[in-house]
Design a binder for these strands. Structure first.
Lengths: 344, 344
DNA sequence: CTGAAAGCGCTTACAG
DNA sequence: CTGAAAGCGCTTACAG
């Protein structure tokens, strides 16, 4: 079962390779009769042009790189399948394939090399990044090298490069959460933030503080934590443990994301503190587990499908050299009230 | 920032392209001094050989295709991230990249075309399939065309092709589950199976029946269902609803997998039937949600990491033309006793 | 140890 | 409408 090349297809069809190529690529200047003759030979022999040849002759790969930076175990997180599936499906809808790469962190030079190689070898037309710091040198380097980069959660208003694409979480998230808690009657608010090198985390934090100031809510140092160590869930757990040591407890704890909230749940459960009777908890993300835990987690949920399809669509627009795409977009989320925040 | 090719690197280093290529590929017959001279130029200019050129000259892609056939929403299933991450990470450990493709079903000719194209265009060295029927024409066709195919849950003992690689769930699963329930004192056993075109589902079913026969447990038609419609969870739900209409209830329901079990949970909850007090439920898979639902699901869990790394490792062994790999392997699971099966 | 040359499979500008 | 030819970037068998 030897593979045929365009030469042999041409010979069998009695035309030149040029014509075979024209048929394969759907050029319009081939008469119907010739086209059909060639198509028959192509179909009879199951001929597909080899990508490597096409690439060398200047075609695009039709492939997006998907680079996922995560220091935690990707395999156990439900949000991960959300990411994976959304990117892959959004790309597929536009006829693109996805080359996947999971990477622990970008301070490891080996990982940086790997990703750089994927671009420089010409394996992909563009790359989608998730989990990167807002100021990631690798991403800056690739953008500087004119690679098309779509980043989930990334904002550089000062840079207007057309190859710097991003999608962002609603900027008002933090404010809306505090407003909601205020409306429920909460005045004693604890905060366990996530990794501040992530743009969204910074904005959420800013939002929390801004709104608390506005409502004249006291910010207490012993109720504020940064859960930026290894794994969000464990970080949330240990931050909550520390918080519980303070003399007085807040009536609610805001988590920087749902994973942190799950860690807080674990800490409160362990100490026999009931949610939301003794302490309310609110998350951010809309993580699938939220409805299964007890009590079900009240959270500010994002539409990941929308976010990823926006990012992928605009990244592909850049690849296809459209001129009218937005380089950045903010997608709004919405509060899902479940059982973890009570009215005071 | 124009890309340099091997010609210019050669010129800059004062050698021929042949020598550049030898250095890039780590050939041993290049003296240290030459090697260093060339490497310096390569590094100074950030040169990476273009994959398309290498491919055309006969190199491998270093890429595995990952084809995931799923008629349900991949994004919401926790097992999915398990699949994705395990395959990607196992491949990465051996220096391979993964091209991902999610496909609703293989009766759609368009999907079949897409996957065939990936292989025929030479985008991948081999393919990993998950979610395919045990007797999937596309897979048979690809194997017949000498493509290297690794299938998750696939068994054809009669065929000995070296390019038909598979990994399988423990064959004794069904028997072990019934044995366990028997030991707990259950004698009235209901069964809600999954899609029988999947090899594992067939084997689980066979195991259930074999062991029931051995223990002289009556098989009642009104307690046996095949949840092979659209979505396992919904299928489990409606099968359970039907089962509950029978005059007498079984003391336990065996689900073909955890998703089906979650559907059963929903049906029982809706009817106010308490698990395990009124009816016990047992699942298969070790789905991450199992520990979060209430009561936590007793299930027969598999080590997916092990399964995927076995499959990926052996598939890559085939790509690299090793001679001593096993074409198929069965990975054993183990029972996780949680709260959904009670002792009678 | 190393270079010149052939070859991998395609596309496309060019000429007719 | 269509073919001959150039060119894309690499590797490797060959000759020296």
């Amino acid at each position: 079962m030897q593979r045929l090349n365009s030469n042999e297809i041409a010979r069998l069809a009695g035309v030149s390779r040029s014509t075979v190529s024209r048929v394969v690529n759907g050029y319009r200047n081939v008469p119907l009769q010739t086209r059909e003759k060639v198509m028959k030979v192509i179909n009879d022999n199951g001929y597909y042009p080899l990508l490597s040849g096409q690439l060398l002759a200047g075609k695009k790969t039709g492939t997006l790189g998907f680079f996922w930076i995560s220091n935690t175990a990707v395999a156990n997180d439900m949000l991960c399948s959300e990411y994976f599936a959304r990117v892959t499906e959004s790309a597929a809808e536009l006829g693109y394939l996805v080359l996947t790469c999971i990477v622990k962190n970008l301070s490891d030079q080996e990982n940086v090399e790997l990703i750089k190689r994927v671009f420089m070898q010409g394996r992909v037309d563009a790359g989608i990044f998730i989990g990167a710091k807002n100021n990631e040198p690798l991403i800056e380097e690739l953008i500087a090298k004119d690679k098309i980069i779509g980043v989930f959660d990334h904002f550089h208003p000062d840079r207007g490069e057309q190859n710097r694409i991003s999608v962002n979480y609603e900027i008002e998230t933090g404010v809306k959460i505090i407003d909601y808690l205020y409306e429920l009657g909460h005045r004693k608010i604890g905060i366990i933030d996530g990794d501040m090198s992530r743009y969204c985390m910074l904005k959420r934090h800013e939002g929390f503080l801004t709104s608390m100031q506005q409502h004249d809510i006291e910010m207490r140092g012993e109720w504020m934590f940064y859960a930026d160590i290894f794994n969000d869930c464990d970080a949330g757990y240990s931050a909550a443990k520390s918080l519980l040591k303070s003399n007085e407890w807040p009536s609610v704890i805001c988590a920087g994301n749902d994973s942190i909230a799950f860690g807080i749940y674990r800490a409160l459960e362990e100490d026999g503190i009931s949610i939301p009777e003794q302490i309310s908890v609110i998350g951010i993300d809309g993580h699938g587990l939220g409805e299964f835990c007890s009590p079900p987690l009240t959270t500010f949920a994002y539409d990941y499908k929308k976010m990823f399809s926006s990012l992928v669509r605009r990244t592909i627009a850049a690849v296809e050299q459209e001129t009218d795409y937005q380089t950045t977009e903010f997608i709004s989320g919405k509060l899902i009230e479940r059982g973890s925040c009570r009215r005071l």
